[in-house]
Amino acid sequence: MKKKRLLIRASVLTILAASVIMTIYANLAEGGRSGPETGDKAPDFILTDQNGQRHRLSEYKGQGVLVNFWATYCEPCKEEMPLLEEQYRKYKNEGVHILAVNIGETDVVLNRFLERHELSFPVLNDRNQEVVDAFGVNPLPATFLIDKEGTITGIHEGPILNEKMAAEMMEKIKP
């Protein structure tokens, strides 16, 4: 009798506790990043760069890729461009690539920007913001570090402040 009572009470409480925890967990998961988290597989994408060349993220398998989301009207984005350029030159022969994804500005704006800033890494235009949505990018700039397996090993929302920080990012995804 006593045992039965304990069993019934314990199972009722367990069911209630389980549903409460599940609900709170589901709610918190929804409230977090809308895109992938660190440790998730990076969403694949196909975009065209300033020279008309197509880039597909999954084709970079075996190499590290730094994906940087930016816009011309975002001052910190512009400030980190030279830092990225420097790192790109250093690391491109070591298997780390940089893909800078513009969040879908007009060609005129983008081309004028590229004419004024000498950038050798591919600058991609995400016209319909599909890649921006897939990565859940909200504040700019946002930098995603993707290792040779295609896994996101780091998400940095905000500017890359200095050379040291940029170098650390590249080092982290060096194959």
Partner: peptide
């Protein structure tokens, strides 16, 4: 419209 088949963002 309904999407048919898999697509890749940007593709």
């Amino acid at each position: 419209y309904k999407r048919s088949g898999d697509t890749v963002p940007g593709g």
